[in-house]
Simulated scan of single mutants.
Amino acid sequence: MRFIRFGLPALFLALTACDEPPAPEAPPTEVFVVTASEQPYQPGRTFTARMESRSDVNITAQVTGKLVAVHFREGDVVEAGAPLFDIDPAPYKAALSQAKAERDRARANLSEANSNLTRASKLIDKGYISDSEYDTLQSRKQEAQAAAKSAEAALESAQVDLSYTHIAASQAGRVARSVASVGDVVSPSFGTLTTLVGQGNMQAVFQIPERLLTEAATSPDQPELSEIEVGLVMPDGSTYPQTGNIVYVSNRVAINTGTVEVRAAMPNPNDLLRPGMFVQAQVRLKESIQGLMLPQAALQVDQQGTYVFAVNEQDTVIRLNLQTGERIGENVLVDDGLPAGTRVILRGIQKVRPGSVVTATAFKPATQAHEGSPDTQAAQDAKEGATP
């Protein structure tokens, strides 16, 4: 009786359970995909560069004297010919006056020597003077001519020295601070009084590895220098609005570094580029070409290399191993392993495995407030892009 009492309820529950319908299958996992497509880009490389000016002038004294005037303020932009320094001209004016007097005396001696030789030419024919006396007068004339030329040269030198007491800007540009002060005695050995940098003739100087030079020289698709442009990224991360051209490639490799110096001429209309500034030089083709790209967040890496999860025509997840190239903004160039038009999973990567059946929805970046703030969206993208 006890068996019947406890067995009947169990049998009833078992029969009831047999009548229940089976549990429904879980729906396919939803993933968000992007379609691999060719996009225009400019192939290039980035190098750390230093700005130099081809019109960086050191202003020095050409004569010795006391500095009596400084005509500029530190950092001024000056025009060509603008006065910069004045050295006391008094001793050079005196030297000029003396040189003029010496020239006048030399001219007078030359005139006298000419007159004496002219008279001697008449007397020697009549036998009033000897040949020896005539030769002496000829020598004196030649000596007077040489002395006159020497006096003229001394006068020119004195005039040049006097002109050196006034130092003017050799070009338009921005002047640095004055090393010397009024009252200092300056001379050619004093060194640089100040520097003057022209706004034009700026060059970005950078080094490229000798390996890249060899690859470029042997590549059948090597572009001409006229097809290449150079852009700059400024120290604050902003993009310089002007582009330049390569104007010089060194004819030798630096022994210590194994690199080759390259120079790119950069326009500088707003005086934004300064000598010594460090920038990033982006060497790239002027004309864009097409390349197959994917967002960086879609790429996964494991021991076998770089790969992506894609969705085939049967909505099944497959793995594709890739060979990637350079990074273009938020995208990566795909060199091999990915046919154009392939649907690649961008969001939901952690939820699937190869062979999983999924529901693929085209990924659209969140643009509205209710779709998530930028910080939330970035965090989610980073999470979804993690390697499983």
Rank of each mutant, 00 (worst) to 15 (best):
E313H: 13
V317D: 02
D381K: 02
Q280Y: 09
A379G: 07
R274Q: 15
A281K: 04
E326F: 09
A360N: 02
A297W: 11
E330F: 12
V301S: 13
Q280T: 10
Q350C: 06
P295T: 04
G372L: 05
T361H: 10
Q314N: 15
V358H: 12
I349N: 14
F278H: 11
I349Y: 06
Q304K: 15
L292I: 12
I328F: 09
N331K: 14
V357N: 08
P295F: 01
V332Y: 03
Q323K: 15
R327F: 07
V358D: 07
R327I: 14
G348Q: 02
P365R: 07
A369D: 13
Q282S: 13
G355K: 08
S288N: 12
L292T: 11
Q290M: 14
L285P: 04
P339G: 08
D302A: 10
Q323C: 01
T359I: 05
E287I: 03
S288M: 11
T342N: 09
P374C: 04
I318F: 01
P374V: 01
G355C: 09
G329S: 13
F309G: 01
N312F: 09
A298H: 04
N312G: 09
D315K: 13
Y307F: 15
E313S: 10
A281S: 07
D315R: 15
P339I: 09
M293Y: 05
L299Q: 08
N331V: 01
A369C: 00
F309A: 01
V344T: 12
Q282V: 15
F278Q: 11
F309H: 12
G276I: 07
G329C: 06
P354N: 04
V311K: 07
Q280H: 13
E313G: 00
S373F: 09
D336F: 14
